[in-house]
């Protein structure tokens, strides 16, 4: 089978997987809308997210400011739209980094076995015993609040999860006759991993990717809420809650709406992951 046909088959299979479970469609739709809003921020945000309308501080929602204004007179809606951007960039880049390194490390460990395997998985165990939020706290507090540092911290705690997913099927496939045949034909290890082992774990990677994206977005928001997020005045959803919390009695919109959007993003990503997992689970597949 050539590469194009392989991709086509993968596309068709993915479509069927989605169709088996309607909730994954809802999750995907929600997430797509939110990503579009974030991507089109410069076009759709009614105001500049850092522009201060000092005379219109803490205004309640009106036709001028649909979701009201914050303590500095900045438009809450525009800040939410730009804040989504930060959430999605940090969430997706950290998951992509973790998926890339985790899959490579895990499948190499499973494929090579022996001391290399024990060493890699030992390091993974250590990384996994530090909660995501604490790792974020530690790294961002020490190295400073920047997008890159937050991504590093999040990716570090997520790499082990992807390594684990990649390792087990690699070990299982290693002893299969077709893999031995590939080795006998002199194919390189990398080719065997990419062509014969990787497709088997793609489904699970997608499930974990969307679930951990949810965790990454939530953790980034928590860090911003604590005051360890991307530096102000950049709009972040967690940072908006932090700033709005002070005026929660007089201007609840400044903190409650951004929180609702975090919840929506995390929920959409979880819904997608959950639906995909059900659809891919062979035990649940046949009896519906």
């Amino acid at each position: 089978m050539n590469t194009l046909a392989r991709f086509k088959r993968f596309g068709v299979e993915t479509y069927h997987v989605f169709n088996r479970n309607k909730t994954s469609w809802v999750g995907l739709l929600l997430l797509t809308i939110l990503v579009l809003i974030a991507a089109l921020a410069p076009l759709i945000a009614p105001y500049d997210p850092v522009e201060q309308h000092i005379v219109q501080r803490l205004q309640s929602p009106s036709t001028d400011f649909l979701l009201g204004t914050d303590y500095y007179g900045r438009d809450v809606l525009s800040r939410i739209i730009w804040g989504c951007r930060v959430s999605f960039v940090i969430g997706s880049v950290s998951v992509a980094v973790a998926m890339f390194f985790g899959t490579i490390l895990g499948s190499m460990a499973g494929y090579k076995g022996g001391y290399f395997d024990s060493f890699v998985m030992g390091v993974m165990d250590v990384l996994m015993s530090i909660p995501t939020l604490l790792m974020g706290l530690l790294i961002v507090a020490i190295l400073g609040p920047s997008k890159a540092n937050i991504i590093i911290a999040l990716a570090l705690t997520m790499i082990p999860r992807f390594a684990r997913i990649a390792r087990a099927p690699t070990i299982a496939a290693k002893s299969k006759v077709y893999v031995e045949a590939c080795q006998a034909m002199g194919f390189s290890d990398i080719r065997i991993l990419v062509v014969h082992i990787f497709p088997n774990i793609l489904g699970e990677l997608m499930v974990m990717g969307s679930m951990w994206m949810a965790t990454a977005v939530r953790t980034e928001a928590a860090l911003s809420f604590i005051g360890l997020g991307v530096n102000p005045p950049t709009a972040t959803l967690g940072g908006m809650i932090r700033e709005g919390f002070k005026d929660i009695m007089s201007a609840p919109w400044a903190s409650l709406y951004p929180g609702l959007v975090i919840l929506l993003i995390v929920f959409a990503a979880n819904l997608l992951g959950d639906g995909l997992r059900d659809a891919l689970d062979p035990k649940l597949r046949n009896d519906k």
């Binding site: 949810a214 939530r218 928001a221 928590a222 809420f225 967690g238 809650i241 929180g259 975090i262 919840l263 995390v266 929920f267 979880n270």
Partner: peptide, 8 residues
């Protein structure tokens, strides 16, 4: 429930 950020 599990999507809720605990601070929110």
């Amino acid at each position: 429930g599990l999507s809720f950020p605990a601070f929110y």
